[in-house]
Design a protein around this nucleic acid. Structure first.
Length: 314
DNA sequence: ATGATTTGACCTGA
DNA sequence: TCAGGTCAAATCAT
């Protein structure tokens, strides 16, 4: 197959990923009652919905290279499910947050900071590549501390958003290497990014050309994807699907297009109600990757209007 | 020169 | 009091 660049592959993977989930959702008859065993459960639909939204967000983020709509959209997805008849148990380990205007408060108190949404991801690195730790999201972090934790074999590292002082972005993350499996890093994020990820707010709203810094982030992401990693989202309470607010993560084999082995993609857990997320579920067969023969109906390098709430504030 | 990281000191909440 | 989280001066990297 002709070499397709990483960005295209990732985009295709995400779009196909979302499409698969959407198809499953579509194929599921809406149950008149809760009796049929062939129908997806509400939890399964919820997971599918998250999957769809997540995939499209990731694809959009790759294309736009800009902001991060994920949390808002995750909340929307949860709302949609809730409105369809069931109030889901929180599928994302995010605690309620103060509203967004507080995120821009340069004098946000430590108490308020503690109320910022918090969630955890487990990131597996490839030890043979000599990777020290996860460097795996599009955001720009500055390390501000490291601490030995009682009973933990490895120290915990503390990072904050690079744009904390310039854009009052209060997002932080902690990285803790797992005692049991040193190839796994537990990354705890706190707070949504309110920054524009290095892009100075444009003088005119929208219609902005992508800045070189964004390209760098995307290149970084692609490099990381090449060198890294598999993300496990199976460590969460119950069988919830995690909604990372940060960059998309992939297993290496997904990116290289080899799905013949069962193709893990993002959610590789087997404990959840669904194990459909691998791309083998549809029109892939061993030894071939027909999904890569799809034409791009648009210019993937073009800036697009995502329609999501943005960080391009006045 | 500038920005990032390191690391001991300090702060805070349980 | 102590563990976890943050600050900030010193140091390092570019």
């Amino acid at each position: 197959m002709e070499m397709m660049n990483w960005e295209h592959k990732n985009l295709l993977n995400e779009l196909i990923h979302g499409l698969n989930a959407a198809k499953q959702l579509q194929a599921s008859p809406s149950p008149p009652s809760s009796s049929s065993s062939s129908c997806l459960t509400t939890e399964m639909k919820e997971t599918l919905l998250h999957q769809i939204v997540s995939s499209y967000e990731k694809a959009i983020m790759m294309l736009s290279g800009s902001h991060n709509p994920t949390t808002e959209t995750a909340e929307l997805a949860v709302d949609l499910v809730a409105n369809s008849g069931k109030i889901p148990e929180s599928p994302v380990s995010i605690t309620e947050s103060p509203k967004s205007e507080e995120a821009f408060d340069p004098n946000i108190s430590s108490k308020k900071r503690k109320l910022l949404p918090k969630w955890t991801e487990q990131v597996r690195i490839s030890p043979e590549r000599g990777f020290d730790g996860p460097h795996d999201d599009i955001f720009s972090w500055r390390k501000y501390g490291q601490k030995d934790i009682l009973g933990a074999k490895y120290p915990r590292s503390y990072y904050r958003c690079t744009f904390r002082n310039t854009q009052y972005c209060w997002a932080t993350k902690q990285v803790q290497r797992s005692d049991g499996d040193p190839t796994i890093f537990e990354v705890t994020y706190r707070g949504k990014h309110t920054c524009s990820h290095g892009i100075p707010p444009p003088p005119e709203k929208r219609e902005t050309k992508r800045k070189p810094t964004v390209v760098n982030y995307q290149n970084d992401l692609l490099n990381n994807l090449k060198t890294n990693l598999t993300v496990r989202t199976d460590g969460f309470e119950g069988d919830a699907f995690s909604f990372p607010v940060t960059a998309p993560f992939y297993s290496f084999e997904s990116i290289t297009g080899d799905f013949s082995n069962g193709g893990t993609f993002g959610h590789v857990g087997s404990s959840g109600p669904l194990d459909f997320i691998g791309l083998t579920s549809t029109n892939t067969s061993a030894g071939s990757s027909p999904i890569f023969d799809v034409d791009f109906p648009f210019d993937p390098t073009a800036q697009i209007d995502t329609g999501f709430p943005t960080f391009l504030h006045d």
